[in-house]
Design a protein around this nucleic acid. Structure first.
Lengths: 356, 356
DNA sequence: AATTATTTGTGCGTATGTATC
DNA sequence: AGATACATACGCACAAATAAT
């Protein structure tokens, strides 16, 4: 049997959640509430006290009891932004982090950081932790964005509590939340068109299947082929997952499936380097026999033996934009924060024109 | 006029502060307290309620009211560790971060991160922020560790509040706080001895002056020379600061000062590469004319034109150890957390034996 | 500018319920 | 089973702050 004061607590809390009692609004007086619920004034006070401790209500002697104003009110801003990313060691992430950190500290915010290693369970823990602890906003690179997410309820909960969320690098297509990312479809399109312009027609593609970026880059790749009137050959398309790569991706499969291609579009620099070694094992030279293009433009791409032509990732700029837009969102929840960065190809020496 | 219940609140709070009421101890019953202070039981309850909300007391129905048992400090554990580092983009830091993050999340902690860019003022802000917000412990790479720090009072404040502090990479020699770092003196010693064993005697050194690591590596360098009976030539020693490097360190000075050296010990890979280009501009070859050894063993050292022989930095291991030891310190403030990692030279091709 | 009604804050007395020892 | 302690609940009175008249 729920105590009377708890019944009242729940009644008020529900009404605040449903926006029926809006921020800043004045509650009925203690006497009135007591009459409404046929309880004593002391009981009403006990209920109100719980919600004051919770930070949902604020009592002003002689005036009344008010629903706490979220913006510019007493509901103290924590000045902390939660950042959840997939990988620490990722080359791209250190650039993004640099950008975010500059913007956040300049604006007096500090950053709470967690990594998911692209595991759903870690993401769940990180989200729960941030929500419990309380952050003013979340910047998240979702885990396994290419697959349906079981953490959607946690994201919803955060939104209901008024915590703005901004995705970066990738996003869940099923959630209508803002994101800041490289335009991955355009990147796939541009890279594939680049190969087509160099005369290639048998163009293979290697894509990551559990990240939504992979799907989008694949979509761009397919569109480029269709636009050029080239039939899509499923044998030339290879999908891999986070776990595949960790297990030591077998290059045997690569050699076999890609043997007839004259060019390969690779999901990122890391997999591109794997592809290059696989090709070398098969006795093929890059770029003379097979051209390779990738996405990321990391140090790896610059410094490896055959410097890779690659679609640049706007790391630092992306981090800056993400942080700025989240801060906007904190001020104004209706702010349109989505940004897609157009791709930009950095030419090096891993692609050459096809000559038969 | 203070309300009666507040008088009681203060009375109890004082007694807890003075250890007169100890952790876990049972308080007098509400009725008794009421009689003692000649107030009603309701008033006593109101006072107790304030302290329960404060986390100082805990009421158990049917049993009594108890002083909250707490772990070595004023506040309940937040399960958050603050990490303050100098640079985001630093190659070493991403490895350290990876190690720390793994340990912290495995133990249910989250990480609040801030960067100082090696500026004292940023460090001050970061520290103040962490202390205000409340963290269970701090892992700090101090800024300008080679110079006297004006932030010492903030560190003291944190310690007084019972927040353990662990330094990493470097430390303030004036503060008796634990640290986890590469043994920089031993690194300087080992690297210089390596050059001496290769027959070099005119060995220059380039050191960073505002980081304590620079001083220690210099100390190791000097010791190696003395041990080998080589007189220290001040003309062969070059000092630079964070700001010098940011301004675009002039290679002219380097060329001039180092012209007579046959080998150079460099503070890190970054400055070593600067030195290599300076030598090249002066028409000297590395390693044929001048040998170069550095500290860091970054990707840069591996991938640059003349791969650098370098003292390896135990990045990930250091991060793991730092996080583990901080967690130990949180449990047991008397834990000896200091670790100095022995240096370990990775041989590449930037050093060759002296032949006249 | 002073008054008054309203609203919350403080404080007490009492009664009953329920968990613990 | 009984004594004790906290939990819930009601009623009343007055103080202090606020807002409207």
């Amino acid at each position: 049997m729920l105590p009377k004061y708890m019944v009242l607590v729940n009644w008020i809390r529900d009404r605040i959640k449903n926006q029926e009692f809006k921020y800043g609004e004045k509650l009925a007086s203690e006497k009135e509430l007591g009459q409404m619920f046929s309880v004593s004034r002391q009981t009403v006070r006990q209920a109100i006290n719980v919600l004051v401790q919770d930070g949902l209500l604020e009592s002003r002697q002689g005036s009344g009891t008010y629903v706490t104003r979220r913006i510019a009110g007493k509901h103290s801003p924590k000045m902390v932004v939660g950042v959840i990313s997939t990988y620490v060691n990722d080359y791209i992430f250190s650039g993004i982090l640099r950008g975010m950190e500059n913007v956040l500290t300049e604006n007096g915010y500090s950053m709470q950081l967690a990594f998911t290693h692209n595991h759903i369970e870690s993401e769940k823990n990180a989200l729960a932790n941030m929500l419990t602890r309380g952050v003013d906003g979340l910047i998240v690179e979702p885990a396994k964005s290419g697959l349906p997410s079981p953490n959607i309820d946690l994201y919803q909960e955060a939104l209901q509590e008024g915590t703005p969320i901004l995705f970066f690098n990738t996003y869940y297509s099923s959630l209508a939340l803002p994101h800041v990312a490289l335009d991955d479809a355009a990147a796939g399109l541009a890279a594939t068109e680049y190969l087509i312009r160099a005369g290639h027609r048998r163009i293979a593609g290697i894509f990551k299947l559990d990240d939504y970026q992979g799907r989008l880059r694949y979509a761009g790749y397919v569109r480029a082929l269709i636009n050029a009137g080239i039939a899509l050959d499923d044998n030339l398309v290879l999908w891999y997952s986070t776990e595949d790569f960790a297990d030591g991706f077998s290059t045997g499969k690569m050699r076999q499936r890609l043997s007839s291609a004259t060019a390969i579009f690779c999901y990122n620099d890391q997999i591109a380097l794997k592809a290059v070694s696989a090709l070398r094992e098969a006795g093929k030279r890059v770029p003379e026999d097979v051209s390779v293009i990738s996405v990321e433009n990391s140090d790896l791409a610059k410094l490896c033996e055959v410097p890779l032509t690659s679609v640049a990732h706007p790391m630092e700029e992306l981090g800056i934009t993400a942080a700025q837009n989240l801060l906007h969102l904190i001020q104004d929840p209706s702010f349109k924060a989505t940004v897609n960065f157009p791709p930009h190809i950095v030419e090096r020496s891993s692609v050459c024109p096809l000559h038969d």
